[in-house]
Write a protein that binds this DNA or RNA. Sequence first.
DNA 1: CGAATTTGACCAGCGC
DNA 2: GCGCTGGTCAAATTCG
Length: 453
Amino acid sequence: MLAHVLIYIYVKMTWTAVEAELRRVVEENRRLNGMLDELTRSYNALYHQLLQVTQQQQHPHRHPDHHLTMNSNRSSLTQTHRTTAALLPTPSSATATATQQFLEPHASSTAQQQTAGNDEAGGGEESPPALSSAGGQGRMGMAQDEMKAPARENNGEQAAADQLPCRKPRVSVRARSEAPMISDGCQWRKYGQKMAKGNPCPRAYYRCTMAIGCPVRKQVQRCAEDKTVLITTYEGNHNHQLPPAATTMANTTSAAATMLLSGPATSRDGAMLGHPAAMFHQSFPYASTMATLSASAPFPTITLDLTQTPAGAAGLLHALHRPPAIHPAASPAMPFAVPPQLAMYLPQKAAPAMVPTATAGLGLGARHPSVMETMTAALAADPNFTTALAAAISSVVAGGAHQALSTSTPRGSGSGDAGDNNGNGNPAPASAAPTSRSPPRLATQSCSTTSTT
DNA sequence: CGAATTTGACCAGCGC
DNA sequence: GCGCTGGTCAAATTCG
């Protein structure tokens, strides 16, 4: 009898917690919907402005200079592939296309094909199915063309890419690490080392060996100014399934890049008020200090700087776990897409992985501690964060990840998902309300990093 | 002995 | 055209 009463009380409490969480999620969802409407309206306005400008100017080669703001880059790069906004199907898809094109001509062409049935094939190069399909299929599709060109033939592909106005984009991660190379879950084989100009430290070249013919390369180099800073630059798309550890890093970079692409540079542009960039930047003002995008020729490069102030790093981590909703695979309704380049890191199974209210960080960290070591390094200096981290570890150790997922412990452990969310590494937007950046979230993120140290 | 790393050579792009 | 630089290759070497 007593057991029944206890069970009843337990269920009651749990239900109350669930209800509270549900209300919060609904509220957040409403807020995001409003944001989405706002974005759509802004894009419509911008689209018409762009059309007007295009009609007025009629300049085929408008932006020969690569050193432009991100806005300019997008437009110029887009125009390089196709003839300006006249081809842009709809404001929303156009934006996605522009973003994709900026980073990956291959995928952009696909996106264009899908949206407008236009088969320009992105300036002549082959156009794999790419990101059109959600998650891993998209990635695998993207890699198909590259699979055709193992080893040597990659040169040919690269040569073809070289002819493109927009070469393969890169994702660069700056992090403090004593290790010669950060562990990102993939297997790499060193194939070269060079002394780069202006840096006493050699630059090492690695290629992914997790699959035959995987075209992904990465460069590792220590920062000249601060040799404790390790700069890792990724290039290319994997043609194979990524281990969860790899997807972790991937999610980090992809989320940051997504945020970035819609962010800093554009927000500087007054005309872009209402742009998702501006909006996201309002939410994550620190992002501009943590991530930068450079389209300086020939590689557009997204740089994630995890070496800066702990507060900023923590903020970035917050942000990194927020944008999943803007990933096309996860939320096709959003008007802008994750960069295909970064999509290589995205989870193979996007939808199932999107566990609501789950904080990616915990799952990531719980599974692959070493992956987040760079962030750990950046964050370790913050005492408050360390405290939160310790709390998170305690809760996880005590309750277990899955229990943490259950709503029996309303907020704190509720943010933890040590489960499959990893594949995605991103929490549902509902759990990522800017206003509800609760310590548990921080803690869970830190948790992922702790195990690395 | 096979796999991984090292390292000098080669090639292509770019600026002058 | 020439030199510089980044990126890659492949033979030699090292490692497990």
